[in-house]
Structure formats: structure tokens, C-alpha cells
Amino acid sequence: MRLLGPAEIRILADKLDLRPTKKLGQNFVIDAGTVRRIVRVADLSPDDVVIEVGPGLGSLTLALLPAAAQVVAVEIDPVLATQLPITAAEHEAAGNLTVINADAMKITLDDLAGHVPTALVANLPYNVAVPVVLHLLQTLPSLRKGLIMVQSEVADRLAAGPGSKVYGIPSVKAAWYADVRRAGPVGRTVFWPIPNVDSGLVSLTRRDPPPTTASREEVFEVVDAAFAQRRKTLRAALSSWAGTPADAETTLRAAGVDPSERGEQLDVHAFARIAEHRP
């Protein structure tokens, strides 16, 4: 299939009087090789239903359509949402495309026109990448895998393991839902406008959450408390959450966690155990 190149993207942008905005995190991919690479690394099967967030002018969408049974593109910008089916039709690829003009942060399964997505593939706006990923993993349990392009720093945070300097709340919460790994770097020049940061690919493979009697909300509450003051020991950081420093120490020891450790040293299973033993 013929994909969008730099010239066609600029023609489309002029037609729509489009000026990419930082507010919406709009950096459009103009390199066909990059979108082909994304689709290849995403490892889609012909029966996959892909949800794409922020399709923009359709660079990645056009590459996804031949590789999946259905592509559900969620676009917050009404002008772009209106244009995308037209662009797909012009490239003879509109048969399995559904475009939904909505905020991905508020989307639910009921909003997806009867489609049940199995894969997330997207060039995510930098400013909302983490909350969008966590929202979709929570809201759409049918998602079994994903490949997202995000700011390199965000990719590092999402894929970080315990002990890493960038391990934090996004790392732990993403690990609740999925095995998260870096899947390669992406240079700046494949975008228009060119961002002032590098990007990276992140792969997601759904897995069961830790076996625990605590709810996801209860576990995430511990995570938030532990990293709110990440330089403090868990005994100190969790004192308000548990009630007192002594209660925090008792809870941590009951969970098999050293009270002198810090949140950055614990995996999601340890946080789940702590939540189970809250006084």
C-alpha cells in the first residue's frame, strides 16, 4: 500500500489549515519506513482488532489497516477525525477502519462501536502517554498486547525495573497489567514538526496481576504513597497511609519487606503484599 510521505502530509495539513499544537502533543510521523517498522514490531495477526490513539493525519493508520482485521482510531481533534476516513478511502483502505472522535482518556468499551480491541498500536501524544496507556489497560481487558511510540524518557520509565533511577509510579502501575519492555529507539527527524526530544518504542504484553486479596485501587494507593517522597524509607513514606510510623513498620514486616527500603526497590508483587497487610 502507498503510505503518506512528507509532501503528502504537508499538503493535507495545508488543506485542513492545520498547525500542530503542543497542547494536543501533535507530532506527525512523516517517514513511511518508521510506520512499517512499528507495524512489523507490533507483530499483529490478521484477526487482531487494533485501537490506535491519536492517528492524526493517518500515517500509521494506513500501515495498520492491511495488517489487522479492524482498526479503531480514536482522535480527539474533530477536523482530523473527519479527514481520516477520506484519506483512507483515497488510499483504497477504508473498509476496516472505524474512526471515533473522542478523548482517549475517557473512552470505554461501550464507545468503540461494538469492536473489542485486542492490540494497542499508537504514536501517543507525549503529554498524555502514561495516563492514556494505564486507562486503556484498565478499561479494555481485551487488550492482549501493544506497541506504543512515546518520548524516550517516558519509554524508560514505563519499562524500568526495581532499582533503576527512573523506576517509579508509571513503572509499577504498568507492571500490574503487563510485561513492559523497550522495543527500540526512534529518531527525531521522522516527525513533523521535529520534536526537541527523542522517542522510543515500548512493547506491552498483558499478564495477570499479582495474586492478592487487595484491590487494584488499594495497591495503587500504596504505590502513590511510597513514591510521593521517594527519598524516604518506606517506614516514613507509608506512615500516613498506615496510620503511624509504627503501623507502617508492622505492615511492612508482615508483608516481608524491610522497612528501611525505599519504594524504588520493590516490584509490583511486594506492593500488593503491603496493601494486603494494611492495618
Rank of each mutant, 00 (worst) to 15 (best):
A178Y: 04
L158Q: 05
I148V: 15
D179I: 07
K165G: 15
L201E: 06
N196I: 00
V180N: 00
A175G: 11
L158M: 15
G163W: 11
R144N: 14
Y167L: 05
Y167A: 01
G146W: 01
R188W: 07
K173V: 14
G163S: 12
G146E: 09
G184L: 12
V186N: 02
A175Y: 09
K165Y: 03
W192K: 03
S152Y: 13
V190S: 10
S164V: 07
E153R: 06
A178I: 03
V154S: 11
A160F: 13
L201I: 08
K145N: 12
A174R: 04
D179Y: 01
G200K: 05
Y167F: 13
G146I: 09
Q151W: 08
P195L: 02
K145E: 10
A178V: 04
F191G: 00
I148Q: 01
S199V: 07
P170I: 15
K165C: 06
K145L: 10
V154G: 09
Y177C: 06
R188C: 05
Y177V: 06
G187V: 09
D179A: 10
D198H: 08
G168N: 12
N196G: 09
K165L: 04
E153H: 10
Y177S: 08
L147V: 12
V186P: 03
A174H: 06
R181H: 11
K165N: 13
D156S: 14
V172N: 06
W176Y: 15
F191L: 02
G187K: 09
V172C: 11
D156F: 04
N196M: 03
A155C: 12
V166A: 14
K165S: 14
V180M: 04
A183E: 10
R181V: 06
D179P: 04
G187C: 05
P193H: 03
A155W: 06
P185S: 14
R144T: 15
I194H: 07
P193C: 06
D179L: 08
W176H: 02
R182V: 07
A160I: 09
G161N: 08
R157A: 04
V154L: 08
G200Y: 02
G163A: 13
V154K: 05
P162C: 11
W176T: 00
V186A: 08
G184H: 11
N196H: 10
G146N: 14
N196L: 02
G184I: 12
T189S: 13
L158H: 08
L201R: 03
V150I: 10
N196P: 01
K165F: 03
S171V: 11
V150L: 02
K173M: 15
D156I: 07
S164H: 10
Y167V: 01
R157P: 04
D179F: 02
Y167Q: 05
A178R: 02
G168Q: 12
K165E: 13
T189P: 00
A178C: 12
Q151R: 09
N196F: 02
G161Q: 14
K145T: 14
R181S: 07
A174L: 13
A175K: 08
V172T: 11
R188K: 14
D198I: 00
M149K: 10
S199H: 05
S199A: 12
S199T: 07
T189F: 05
Y167P: 01
V166T: 15
